[in-house]
Every structure is written in structure tokens, then in C-alpha cells.
Write a protein that binds this DNA or RNA. Structure first.
Lengths: 329, 329
DNA sequence: GATTAGCATTCAGGAAAATAGAGTGCCAAA
DNA sequence: TTTGGCACTCTATTTTCCTGAATGCTAATC
């Protein structure tokens, strides 16, 4: 357990460091804590022993450790009021009532990365909640067609299918009708099962070139499920942070952003707003990620804000909360 | 006009610099040109006076200037044979016959950025060639629906539309039928005209809530045309090039990649493979861009390869050519 | 006239040294 | 428990020095 004054000290150091990105000296806090620098140094020493503070070298000022940020976030930080300025910008998203949901999320993402100067990532995950409402096939040449899948919640996926052999328009229509009959209402992630166990056994009876067509549709559906939806906004923002003033560090982060697997990993399952500091993020030890899982009108996914460890946690959380509250309605 | 030997010298310097990223000294070329370093220095001086070579400082070796690369590309460079290795990887794309076109382009882009270690950008431009083959609307709640547009060449766009007021399913259906009747066969970029001059005047006769629905569809179509399709692969590659070993330069480039307007500018109109060196690229003075416009089965757009100025022009061009030839079939 | 050897000159880039300044830790006194 | 004082540590910057790799130019040579 740490004392009231130590907590206040930690708070001051975290907030000062967030602002200035410079190790905080004992002297600079005398006024705020109304005591001498020596006293503060003593307290700092204790906090360092507890692992809440660190030094960059023997005689440097103190910097919050990962554990220090964690303590700050868990025990010290208070939710922040939105400033009028932030509020104003946010409202531009929500005043436009006719924005469809996915557009609203995209727009929110852009605004939030702009307001915070961090990087915002949205990971869509439609497969779990949405059910197939309709499939459709439009022939575009002798041996190719587009398969379109529409879900009950308004998600649309389409896939260009090239057939190995020619089939007739009628055969395509029959296949589509059959699949439609059997598949409507099936959650996306169960479609392949339905295709395999319900469609495959009977399709031969109705359709001549059944194997070709079955395989084509099967592959198309498998692709839908596999394709993760990744949207990013303000990629450059986090690279502009002063702590990443180093070519190799910037390259490291860009490489991770470039790697779809790495980014997909950011996905959040827990409800509410979750904070991952440094190594907790499992993305990069030098960043923090605030994530929240959302389920809105069938659009489901993760919205994540990636900033430096010395992120303005309070403000970022307030902004995300505001967005979530307003999307919810 | 420059002499045969000067041309040979320029060739050696360009190719050596492409390989090593180090200014090329006169001495290092004695063997290749079978003369003394002094002679080479004399020739280098002439090429420098012509603006084809540069020095990084008074006593440094020579580096090709932008004009030097241009001369190399226009007059010296010969098309390169594909190596067996490159060929092998490329074939993985094309042996899979059932890849739909847009997938083939995406896959090609990935392979080409991997093989070259440069960044590949594809800018889709569907609006000019494609014609509307069908529109469809799927209601998903009392006041929202998805509008889907399918073009004759297999491109699909969909838009979530939120209506200001409730309308009946019948009204939606009537609107869609009417629009379909009037719009089929219209090139995408003329759709808004048709909507305004042909649909708008008559829609009132058939549909009750006509204004709301008309506006919704009108906006959806306008959005389709405005949304540029941008795909990038190997973003990190160009940042890994040794000449960009500087945090601020990397940030500059990432910022440009982040900026959709900037990237959209890369669009190419001319046919064939076009080379833009340094400032010619109008993207960044330190990169070169090889672009080609493609029109394949209705998918139209630009494929661009962004590398450092000391790009392996010959190899990159050969690779792009190979891709284009194979997509064409 | 073209080539080349020779030489003074330039400059990058790395190592070493010097300096200033901002911190700290800790002791002893208040 | 707090604090003044002081020795100490380390960074960061500047300065100097040095080496080596180039160059340009001149005068001799082919």
C-alpha cells in the first residue's frame, strides 16, 4: 500500500511525463507537493523500489514504469470531461443522422485518431452475429459469375468466381435457388457446415454441373469468413510521437501495421473499454492500446486506439466512451 | 551527345550505385573500362557538367542525378530476362486459373512487392468503363436498407442507406424497379445524370415517399463514384531501403501514404509502362514510381510500384510486363 | 589530342577529450 | 520526518584531431 502523498507524487510524475516526454526531476515538483526536493527524492526512491518508477540512467529524473502506468490507470486516474472543442468535432459525426452504421464507425475512427493524434484501428467481425438473408449470383461471362451474400444486418460480401468449366445460366440459377432455400437464416460462420451437410448431398439431384458449382460457392463462402476487415486511420500519428524518433523503431511499427496477422491480433473479446499498457498490448512493448468490443445492429468488431505508453489515458477513454454511447442509440 | 565510353561509364555508375548505395569512385571502375582513374575522372567531370552525375560533397565519388537516371532508363537500360526464381513465384499467381480478376491483381501486387522489396499500389477506377447491370435494395429495418449496385463487368458496390422517414417495403420495391428500368446499361459515371434527368421527373407519379427515396439513392450513387479504391502492399518495403535511414524522411513518406488524396494522385492515364523518376513522380523527390494503367475485363485502374530513385528499373519493368501480359489473356 | 602519374586539397566520419549542467543519493543537522 | 548540503554520476554538446578516400589539376608521356 502506498501513501496518499506517494500516490499524488505518482500522479504528478505520470501526468508531467505524458505532457513533456522528459524524465521528471524532484525539484520540479517541490511547489506542487509543498516540500523540499530531498523529501521528494526519498519518496521517489520508495516508488522506484516498488517498481512504479524508473530512471533512464543513474542520475536522471524519474519516468513511470509499465507498472506505474498500470497503477495510475487503475487507482489514480479520474474520467475526464470532454472539452468543448472535442465535443464540437465529435458532434459532426452524430448530427448527421443518415449516416449508416458502418460509415459512422469509419467516421468516428477518423475523428478519434485526429483528436488524439494516435492511431485508430477497427477490426470488423461480421461472421459471428450475422445470418445469411440472401445469396445471389450474377453471371458476367461464360465461365465467371459474381456471388453476392447479403446478411440480415446489412452486411454485403461479393466474390468473383471463375468456373473451371462452362455452365449454363439455368444451372447457376438452380444452384442459387437451392442454396438460398437451405441457407437462409444460417449464421455466416456455420454456412460451410450447412453447405457440406445439407446442400452437397442433394445438389446432384437438381443440377447437372453440380460439382463445379458447389466447389465455387463453397470456396467463396470460405473466403468470406477468412477475410478480416481491417480499417486504419491516422497510421502516421503514432509514428510522429517524440518517443519514436528513431528510424528502426518506426520501421518496426510500420512493419507490424503492415502485417495483417499482427493487426488482427488486436481483436478484443471482453466487454467495455480495456486498457493494455506496453507489453500487455502484445503488439509492441512501447505502445499502449485501448480497445473496446462493440456489437451494434449486427455490425460487430473491435475499435482500438494505439498510442504511446504515455498516452492520455483519461482523455482517450472519455472520447471512446462518448463514441460508444452515441453509436449505441 | 555523349560518347560511347561515357555512356558505358554512366551505365556502370548507375548499376553500381543501385547495388551498393555508395558513391562510385573513379578508381573502382578502372578495370571495367580498362583505363586509368584519371581518365575516368575526366570523363566523370564531363558527365557532371552535363548534369548526369552528382557529388555528395567536393571529394566524394559520383552518384547519378535524376537526369542521369533518366538517360539511363531512356537510352542505356536493356530489358532484363526474368530469373528462374522470379518466374517460379510469379507462376503461383497464374497457375491458379480460378482466381477471379480482382483477386489476381491483388495477388500480383503482393508478389511484386515481395519480389522487388518496393511498395506496390493499386488504384481501382471502376467508374469509367463499367455499366450498371442491376441495382437491388434489401430492407434491413424500418428506416434503413442496403442498396447494391452490380455492374456488367462484375463489380459490386453496396451502401447502407438510412432513411429520414419510414417508407414501406412496397415503396422501396417500386423505386428500385423504376430505377432499374431506367438505369440499366448506364456507365457508372453517368448514373447521377440519369437519376436527375430521367428518374427524378417521373418518380413522383409512382412512389409516395419519393423525395426521401430519391435522395437516398442519389447519395448512394454519388458516394460510389467518389470512393477511390486503394490497395497497398509492402508499405514497409520502401521504408526499409537504406537511403531512408532517417526518422523524419520515413515519417514524411508514411504521412504521404496515409493521405488518400496524395495516393490517388498516383493514378496513371497513359498506356504502357511509364517511369517517373524522383521529382517527376510528383509524390516524393526521393522515390521513383513505375506505373501502368490497365483495363482488364472491365476492371480498370493503375498499378504502381514505388521504389527508391536507385530502383532496379530493368527488373521492375520486366516483372510488371510479365504480370500485365499474363493478366491480359 | 588523349592518357596518365603525381600531388595538393577537400571533406566525411570516427575517436578522444573537454566542458557544462541537470540530476541523484546520502549524510548529518534541524 | 524533513531538509540543506555536497559529492558524485551521467548525458549531451562542442571541440579537436586524425585517417582515408576521393577529387581536380598540372605536367609529362604516349
Amino acid at each position: 500500500m502506498i501513501s496518499k502523498r506517494q500516490e499524488e507524487l505518482l500522479k504528478l510524475i505520470v501526468e508531467e511525463y505524458i505532457k513533456t516526454v522528459k524524465p521528471v526531476s524532484s525539484k520540479s515538483l517541490c511547489d506542487a507537493l509543498d516540500c523540499s526536493s530531498a523529501t521528494i527524492r526519498n519518496e521517489m526512491g520508495i516508488l522506484e523500489d516498488l517498481g512504479l518508477l524508473e530512471k533512464t540512467h543513474t542520475s536522471s529524473g524519474r519516468v513511470p514504469s509499465e507498472k506505474g502506468y498500470r497503477y495510475y490507470v487503475d487507482n489514480i486516474m479520474k474520467p475526464k470531461e470532454l472539452t468543448g472543442d472535442d465535443m464540437l468535432k465529435l458532434q459532426t459525426v452524430f448530427k448527421n443522422k443518415s449516416l449508416a452504421l458502418s460509415d459512422a464507425i469509419t467516421k468516428s475512427m477518423e475523428i478519434i485518431s485526429e483528436l488524439t493524434n494516435y492511431t485508430c484501428v477497427v477490426l470488423g467481425d461480421t461472421s459471428k452475429v450475422n445470418k445469411v438473408s440472401k445469396i445471389e449470383a450474377v453471371p458476367i461471362s461464360d465461365n465467371s459469375l459474381i456471388a453476392i451474400v447479403i446478411t440480415d444486418k446489412g452486411h454485403v460480401e461479393n466474390k468473383n468466381i471463375v468456373l473451371e468449366e462452362n455452365v449454363t445460366v439455368d444451372e447457376i440459377k438452380q444452384t442459387v435457388d437451392l442454396i438460398n432455400k437451405l441457407i437462409i437464416g444460417t449464421p455466416i460462420d456455420e454456412v460451410s457446415k450447412v453447405l457440406e451437410y445439407e446442400v452437397k448431398p442433394v445438389i446432384g439431384k437438381y443440377v447437372h454441373q453440380h460439382e463445379v458449382l458447389y466447389n465455387a460457392f463453397y470456396n467463396a463462402f470460405t473466403d468470406f469468413a477468412a477475410d478480416p476487415i481491417i480499417k486504419m486511420s491516422g497510421t502516421k500519428n503514432i509514428l510522429m510521437q517524440p518517443e519514436f524518433d528513431d528510424a528502426s523503431k518506426i520501421r518496426e511499427i510500420v512493419s507490424k501495421f503492415d502485417d495483417k496477422d499482427m493487426v488482427s491480433n488486436i481483436k478484443e473479446d471482453k466487454n467495455g473499454i480495456n486498457i493494455y499498457i506496453g507489453s500487455e498490448s502484445e503488439f509492441d512493448d512501447d505502445v499502449s492500446i485501448i480497445k473496446t468490443h462493440y456489437t451494434l445492429n449486427g455490425e460487430e468488431g473491435t475499435i482500438a486506439l494505439i498510442g504511446p505508453k504515455r498516452m492520455e489515458y483519461d482523455r482517450a477513454i472519455t472520447l471512446l466512451n462518448y463514441i460508444m454511447d452515441n453509436l449505441d442509440s
